Simulated scan of single mutants.
Amino acid sequence: MNDDRESRKQALLRELGDIQSLLDDMESSAATKTGGALDSDQIRKLASERANPFLSPGATPPTPSPAPRPAQQLGSAEIDRIVDSLVEEALPKLEKALRLRLRDALRRKN
């Protein structure tokens, strides 16, 4: 049981490292672009390239069909709005997955 917990812990730490790497890649690519900023479609595309640790193995996340948008430079307020929107969209799914995993873990202990 401890080994399983440790392996899950290591998997989450690797995922956090991957997220940090993605953020670093986004910052470095944003600095080299002429516009200097990523729009929400680019952020979604980059995020969808990473594996989702909350989905069961073999499950594939739905692929959104982004509407084509002209390239534009985003202001700080727009970036905050996009991030808030993405987080607001993802939180209920993450919360549900976490609740299910916690319930399952507690049931296995009893």
Rank of each mutant, 00 (worst) to 15 (best):
M26R: 00
E49D: 13
T60K: 04
K93R: 08
M26C: 02
Q42V: 06
I19S: 10
A51H: 02
A59F: 01
F54W: 04
A11S: 07
R101P: 06
T60Y: 07
M1S: 00
V87H: 09
Q72K: 00
A105L: 08
Q20M: 04
D80R: 14
A51L: 00
K109I: 10
P61T: 01
Q20N: 01
A97L: 05
E49H: 11
L106S: 02
L91C: 11
R8P: 10
I43P: 07
Q10R: 05
Q42P: 07
E78M: 06
L13C: 04
L46T: 11
A77Q: 13
E89A: 14
Q73G: 15
A97E: 03
A67H: 10
K9F: 14
R108H: 15
A67N: 06
A47K: 00
S48E: 05
D18A: 00
S65C: 02
G35I: 12
K96W: 03
P53R: 01
L13F: 03
L106K: 05
L74E: 11
P53I: 05
L46D: 13
L98I: 03
L38T: 12
A105Q: 02
S76F: 13
I79L: 06
R101T: 09
R108K: 14
I19V: 15
S7L: 04
E78V: 01
K33I: 10
N52G: 01
A67I: 00
Q72H: 08
F54Q: 00
S29V: 11
M26A: 08
R14V: 00
N2R: 15
D84R: 10
D3H: 04
L23T: 14
L98R: 07
M26S: 01
L55T: 12
L13Y: 00
L91H: 08
K33M: 12
R107W: 15
A71K: 08
L12G: 10
R50G: 07
N110K: 13
E27D: 15
S65E: 05
S40N: 14
E15S: 01
P61K: 03
D39A: 09
P62D: 06
T63I: 08
Q20E: 04
L98S: 00
S48G: 02
A11P: 02
R103L: 07
L86D: 12
A105S: 05
I79D: 11
G58A: 02
A105T: 09
T32I: 13
L16M: 13
L16P: 10
P68R: 07
E15C: 01
Q20L: 05
L74F: 09
Q42A: 05
N52I: 02
P92T: 03
S29F: 11
D3G: 03
G36V: 06
L38I: 13
S76D: 14
Q42Y: 06
A51G: 12
L38M: 15
K93H: 02
E6P: 08
G36C: 06
D41V: 03
S7A: 04
A11T: 05
R69Y: 12
L86C: 13
Q73S: 15
A90F: 01
E27N: 15
D84N: 11
L23G: 15
S28P: 00
P68E: 09
T32P: 10
L102E: 12
R69K: 14
L16V: 00
A105W: 04
S56D: 09
L91G: 01
S65F: 01
P68Q: 09
T32R: 11
L106E: 11
M1E: 02
E88F: 10
D80Q: 15
I82L: 08
